[in-house]
Design a protein around this nucleic acid. Structure first.
Lengths: 342, 342
DNA sequence: TTGTATGCGTTATCAC
DNA sequence: GTGATAACGCATACAA
């Protein structure tokens, strides 16, 4: 076998080939293969046999040309690591049914020019819809008002309220964290989180504060400790708190990385987790949460669900109605050892 | 604006519309838009203006139907996190040119059934080629010998030597790590790595041992410490070494996670990195390498390059020739503070 | 029940 | 230089 013969060179069989082999017209062959009425059982069997013999696989492009639908959706992301877009993609695949709809993934790498470029090629490929995934959970510019296809924004909402956006319910997630910690009997809880310019950081803090207030509890350290989404910040903020002799029996961290820094610093000060201080993170980034000592309780943003709902909204839009505004997707708490009862 | 009007309902403009508006035939319009010869400058300008006016965007499907090429490649992955497939995807996008070729990403989630399913839909969409990305760097079953399109395996090679596979050059990478550490003056180097059933683990160890032998140096601890790809293993292996009073001034870790465990254990024993012990990891997983204390030197597998080469091989195959066998892609060493000179 | 003919949007081959 | 016209592969309304 020479290198040129690696893949079969002959064009794939067409409906025409099948029809000819079965001795019928392409119209009949088409009906038979698509399970339409008005075909005798015997001819149907013959057509099916011919198709099997030729390893016939219908050309989805040609089908899309006549149907006016390609069965493809574009996933336009700016998420360099795929940490967001892959779960969202999988959720969307599940909802669509992988055989009916395929996903074209394009990474704009945070570049508006490249995004516009990808948008144009996706539209020229006549995708049936678009899912736009932002890199950070804050409003981003709308990709355009009068696009020929429905668009759903996931994770990062569109700045245009007429667009439909799907975001994580960070406020409720903040409440959940506090609810969980107080359920363990903890009463002096600190909140160490990331960059205050992130709406998500503000929302999580807002939810946490509201839940603390509802329970008549103060926030340990008297204020939310905003900083950066890094282990280093988690460590330094924790050390600051301990140096000030703030009594804490739990920390709600704004991300799993911050949580790891918090745990590190606690250990260095001779405090044990969760016995002395319970710690909960955010994101449920498996690789961090499970390799932490002890394994880290965390809040999962249900990104697969986000992708699934995005797909459902798009599917509904194909039949006419696309909503607008921002839809909140609930998070879920994943308990691990860092917050077991003392 | 009601919800149904969110996206423009009218079908996108066709070549026919442009031709009619410009007052020419569709043949002329086609030539003008595609920059072909035999079109007067004035009519070309008129056509271009009409196209701009109608926001005309050529239907890539129809174009592909006649051209016999879709300009799409399938990326079939089993990599649940996207840590492999996203860099590979980006490399492929770069090599193809994002406007000429789009990538259909399908995640088989390690399920052979689902993989076959995705394969069929990709073929029915008439992708021009296929890139298959495995979850672990060991031979995997070929996806099929007589596919109608060229296939390139990336990261995980195909078990069939007639297929073309692209893998990281782990042997040389192992040599590089030792070369780097000895260049720092380190002479008692241990190798703590992951699951011994991984060919990559064996290859890296092989390279490291060869390089040590070439320099007349022994392996600290007398043997390669195989275990698991986890921080926990990095910690426990390190503790074992220290408990045996093995003198070490450097550790080559088989992954960044293992390296973090190693560093943790060293710190707990009062040893400083890199002053007392230099540590280098593998994978260059940014989030781990940069958040480590100190930042972790590591070996990058150049996954973007792998994707780029995969795209180049596919492109060559479109014009006839696809090679076979396993092609080694070189890794590169990324130095950070964990291995600065003492 | 089956076959004929038309159109989906483009490109390319030819006449003019 | 320009414009009919035939593919490309498929689905379907309509005629037989």
């Amino acid at each position: 076998m020479t290198s040129t013969e690696r893949h079969a060179t002959g064009r794939p069989a067409t409906l025409h080939d099948v029809a000819r082999l079965a001795g019928v017209s392409i119209a009949t062959a088409s009906k038979a293969l698509n399970g339409r009425k008005h075909v005798s059982a015997t001819t149907r069997a013959e057509v099916l046999e011919a198709a099997a013999l030729l390893a016939y696989s219908p050309n989805t492009l040609a089908r899309g040309l006549v149907a006016g639908r390609t069965g493809m959706v574009g996933l336009l992301t700016s998420d360099l690591e795929g940490r967001l877009s892959i779960p969202i993609l999988m959720g969307a695949e599940d909802a669509f049914g992988a055989d009916r709809t395929s996903v074209l993934l394009c990474d704009a790498r945070g570049d508006a020019i490249r995004e516009g470029h990808h948008l144009r090629t996706l539209l020229s490929r006549r995708v049936d819809g678009l899912i736009v995934v932002g890199a950070r959970p804050d409003p981003r510019p709308s990709i355009g008002r009068d696009l020929p296809v429905p668009v759903v924004y996931a994770y990062a909402p569109s700045a245009d309220p007429d667009d439909l956006s799907l975001v994580s319910d960070n406020v409720t997630a903040g409440r959940m964290a506090i609810e969980h910690l107080t359920g363990l009997g903890r009463r002096t809880i600190a909140h160490i989180t990331g960059d205050p310019t992130y709406g998500a950081a503000q929302d999580r803090a807002k939810g946490a504060l509201a839940e603390l207030a509802a329970r008549g509890l103060p926030l340990a350290g008297d204020r939310v400790h905003f900083g950066a989404w890094t282990e280093a910040w988690g460590r330094s903020a924790t050390r600051t708190l301990l140096a000030q002799h703030v009594a804490i029996d739990a920390v709600f961290a704004g991300s799993d990385q911050i949580a790891r820094g918090v745990i590190d610093a606690l250990h260095e000060e001779g405090l044990e987790v969760p016995r002395d201080v319970a710690v909960i993170g955010f994101d449920n980034w498996e690789i961090f949460a499970t390799s932490s000592r002890p394994p880290l309780s965390s809040i999962d943003m249900n990104l697969e669900t986000l992708g699934r709902v995005a797909a459902e909204r798009l599917a509904a839009a194909f039949d006419g109605a696309l909503g607008s505004g921002v839809e909140q997707i609930p998070c879920r708490l994943v308990p691990r050892e860092s917050t077991v009862a003392a």
